[in-house]
Amino acid sequence: MQKIILLLAFLTFNLSSAQAKKKQILLVGTFHYANPGLDVAQLNNFNIMSEKSQKELEIMSDKIKKFGPDKIFVEWEFSKQTELDKFYNKNTDSLFKASKNEITQLALRTAKKLNHKKLYGMNLYTSFPYDSLMMSMEKANQKDLLERNKATTQSFEKIHNEKIAKSSLQEMMLYYNKKQTENENLQWYLEIANRAGNPDDFTGPSLVSNWYKRNLYMYSLIQKLTESKDNKIMVLVGAGHASIIRELITHDPTFELIELSTVLK
């Protein structure tokens, strides 16, 4: 009898979830417009301040405005929301000239056009011990894995740098938001990082779990800060985060994933 009650409750919950109108999330994964060189892969910068790119940013932000997000979430430290609020309220024209990063150039530009009062920071840093990961591979004499890691990094750098040399800003944004590109980004964590070290050395899984943890924390903030009155939101994150967040959205019945390609068409 108890099993039947639990089953009915489960079915009722899922039916009500299915009937409820889903909130739309425009997930935008991106390369860093002002790459500070802190990532493992060393990627060439894009001339985001060129006249061509600035025109593209105007067009992209106009199209996102037409989509109409009620809130825009960005990769800014959650604990520093006050600083983000101050940043958002600075002179917009001077910000566009001084700040090259994607938060300013795309998220803030769009939010201002929508007359939003603020952007929402949802970043939470967790440990990413890459040097320790390499040491674990060396200690375990995993020469093949070290070579595979080197080749994977070099391939990613080569593909990015070749594309960025001949692509427009919108073309690069659409490339980074292809599911295949996101999956290739995620693949490194499972193919290489998680295998690192001797059987009793869990440096690799620790790094991978911290990466997932960071994205889960970020997604938790998206869930908690999205109010009942919000029908659409935009989430702007580095491309490395997008593949995991995409998967979380897919399995969350309250949200519907909106592809960037459908908005920028």
Rank of each mutant, 00 (worst) to 15 (best):
129 P>W: 08
159 I>L: 07
126 T>A: 13
183 N>F: 11
137 M>L: 14
222 I>N: 03
138 E>R: 12
127 S>Q: 10
145 L>M: 10
183 N>T: 10
69 P>Q: 04
259 E>M: 10
183 N>M: 11
5 I>K: 12
185 N>P: 06
133 L>I: 08
77 E>Q: 13
155 S>M: 11
259 E>A: 15
254 T>N: 09
122 M>Y: 11
180 Q>Y: 14
126 T>I: 10
101 N>M: 08
123 N>M: 13
151 A>H: 09
252 D>V: 09
113 K>W: 11
3 K>Q: 14
227 E>A: 12
254 T>H: 09
123 N>C: 11
260 L>A: 03
86 K>G: 15
153 T>R: 06
16 S>W: 11
265 K>V: 08
116 H>M: 15
34 A>G: 10
233 I>S: 05
137 M>A: 11
92 T>C: 14
46 F>T: 00
161 N>Y: 01
234 M>T: 03
137 M>Y: 11
114 L>R: 05
220 S>I: 06
121 G>C: 07
92 T>M: 15
140 A>C: 15
253 P>R: 06
196 A>S: 06
96 F>M: 12
104 T>M: 09
35 N>K: 02
113 K>S: 09
191 E>V: 13
24 Q>S: 15
103 I>C: 02
110 T>F: 03
22 K>T: 04
207 L>I: 04
11 L>R: 06
151 A>N: 12
106 L>H: 03
242 A>R: 02
157 E>S: 00
60 M>G: 00
30 T>V: 05
26 L>H: 02
219 Y>W: 05
206 S>Q: 13
95 L>Y: 07
2 Q>W: 11
199 P>D: 03
43 L>D: 00
121 G>A: 14
204 G>L: 01
19 Q>A: 15
97 K>W: 08
261 S>Q: 11
59 I>A: 05
78 F>I: 11
168 S>R: 00
81 Q>D: 08
177 N>R: 01
103 I>L: 06
188 W>I: 09
220 S>V: 07
32 H>R: 01
83 E>P: 07
192 I>C: 02
146 L>C: 09
112 K>Q: 14
245 I>W: 03
132 S>R: 13
81 Q>W: 09
16 S>E: 13
155 S>A: 14
15 L>I: 13
26 L>T: 05
93 D>E: 15
181 T>D: 04
111 A>M: 05
161 N>P: 00
99 S>I: 15
106 L>G: 03
200 D>G: 07
162 E>M: 03
119 L>P: 04
60 M>T: 00
234 M>K: 05
144 D>W: 08
257 L>S: 06
70 D>N: 09
196 A>M: 04
246 R>G: 06
88 Y>S: 10
137 M>P: 10
88 Y>K: 07
109 R>E: 07
49 M>R: 12
257 L>A: 04
174 L>P: 02
128 F>Q: 10
244 I>G: 01
30 T>S: 13
118 K>W: 08
231 N>M: 07
6 L>P: 05
93 D>G: 11
178 K>R: 12
1 M>N: 10
193 A>P: 03
16 S>M: 14
173 M>F: 00
36 P>V: 02
202 F>G: 07
156 F>G: 00
46 F>E: 00
180 Q>P: 11
200 D>F: 11
29 G>K: 00
80 K>R: 12
146 L>W: 08
201 D>R: 00
225 L>R: 12
